[in-house]
Amino acid sequence: MSDAFRDRIDIALTVNGEPVEARVPAGRHLVDFLRLDLGLTGSHAGCEHGVCGACTVKVDGEAVRGCLMLAAQADGAEVWTLEGLTQSGVIRDLQDAFVARNALQCGYCTPGMLTSIEELLNRGGVPERAEIREHLSGNYCRCTGYEAIVDAVESVARARAEKGAA
């Protein structure tokens, strides 16, 4: 470990709408900062090399790998985790659809999966199943076989589109 990793850096950001100030080691990953320093254990570390998507969080409006971003890079950013998205109610319909369709089993991929899907749903419209599958290809799920997740996303997109049209 180089000395630069041990350097501590002051950061100020908002997490789930709340201001946070912290002094973090330069080598601290965003997902570790959220989990270890803020107790936001809803974000999961799955592979820690940017493939599985379990650590996906929202940074300045975009779905980001929490294991590929340093906490120091989040200085000044607006970060949302599943805890905050839940509390704000913006994905309640999606969460309900996941439960109704059993689009989760062990639940480990689910926080990252929901955060990625939120990004897709925010684009509006009703995506084709192939488009949903393509969008989810940054999020591994080893339990469900994906079909239930695709069903849940499709049903929410359709319901939102109908609601928007009404």
Partner: peptide, 19 residues
Amino acid sequence: VPRPNAPRLVQGRGKYVDD
């Protein structure tokens, strides 16, 4: 019937060992 533990998991309220 729905799984009683599913709402917890979709809200990031699971409790895995590392938590």
